[in-house]
Design a binder for these strands. Sequence first.
DNA 1: TTATAAGTATGAGAAATCTCATAGTTGAGG
DNA 2: CCTCAACTATGAGATTTCTCATACTTATAA
Lengths: 227, 227
Amino acid sequence: MQEIDNQDVINNFIVTSGYDEQFSFDPQQDTKLFHIASNDFIVKTGAPLTYLFYLVKGKAKLYDVLANGKVSLIDFFTPPCFIGEMELIEQRPETAFSMQAITDCWCLALPIRQLQERLLDDPVFLRQICLYFVHKNYRTVKTAGNNAAFPVAQRLASFILLTAHDGLYSEKHVQVAEYLGISYRHLLYVLAQFVKNGYLVKQQHHYKIANLDALTRLAHDVNESTN
Amino acid sequence: MQEIDNQDVINNFIVTSGYDEQFSFDPQQDTKLFHIASNDFIVKTGAPLTYLFYLVKGKAKLYDVLANGKVSLIDFFTPPCFIGEMELIEQRPETAFSMQAITDCWCLALPIRQLQERLLDDPVFLRQICLYFVHKNYRTVKTAGNNAAFPVAQRLASFILLTAHDGLYSEKHVQVAEYLGISYRHLLYVLAQFVKNGYLVKQQHHYKIANLDALTRLAHDVNESTN
DNA sequence: TTATAAGTATGAGAAATCTCATAGTTGAGG
DNA sequence: CCTCAACTATGAGATTTCTCATACTTATAA
């Protein structure tokens, strides 16, 4: 995680992402910009939360670390979205979940310590956060519906497209199986089918997307109804 | 839905439910109390939303009415909880979902029209609603996890206990199947197993719970991790 | 270096779940 | 009274998905 000190870049992100509309005050003064390299963590479970992040570019994934130490994939995020807003609202000092960058990510960041009181008293911000929660909730309900409604192959196709990076898919099978709610064994079956059908090609440590169209077609319905 | 005009009863609910802590002003003046008979609707999709409800007693269930006219069971609610808060935040005039009383319900109710602006500008209220959303979100994530993680029998047991009324279970199979994400056919299989195992006894138009302990034990894990 | 754990891989049989076909029952509306 | 739609019910075979057993590989820690 590396701070970017170019004010032009920052301002550009602030304006194009709608960031400044999230507050009743002008946040520009206090806002920093961070670049998070692919696979690095934006926030990590248990670590103190020092910034309220606002993802403006990139893709990220949210993990839950369970009591037994296992990690479980919860959801994916694309811009614009807040990170750390749940902890801010609950005034919980530590991060509840881990958010990891799938691709390179850029996040605007507002220092929480100085601004917490102000934010929690700012009707504009609170209203925006509420709206954000409402939309997130609709989305969760829809997604939950989809998980029940669509067969694994379609959901996996959708998942591969979501997490692939430069045409390469390289998630940990254990976690994916957990995320999709299927057994490890079955995930491998379905992946093997994709290979047999020519959708994927297995390489050393990852799969290469060989038939983007087919995967996109398979995922189509799932994505449709998630919108 | 019937208004209850007994100020003592109202005040009692207001205090014991924590209702008055949800606002920066004293809501007592504007608050009404409604009794909703079992099976009646608290709010109905598409109808204008005139009150922000706060469920203080009873059990209710949330439906989504799909484009094709089918209804789909989304979730269940127990006190204390808001009803209509999503529409209020989005300033959407119509109810998005339908909420139906499972048992007799009592709801405190705040007229939206006069108070909308005030509510959307009230940091205390907004903060409380945010907290509510955060908790709801945690719960949804957990539930979604459970749906993937637990076998149908356990989830069905949990469901039966949740929706049963005076020891009688009488939900529509079609809707339940949809809610649990299984086929109608399979639901009947599992119900038949419950009958065979002596957990349930089939009667005319419903099932009677015959072995509460067994069902509770089956549902135990599911409920545990939903908390 | 050697354990040890985590990740990957595959087979085989069992269990869960689905689809389809078929029918009886019930309630609302004409 | 009749008809239609919705709900309930059950069987049979197909498909999906799971469990378990078994290995091989790789990274990490002692």
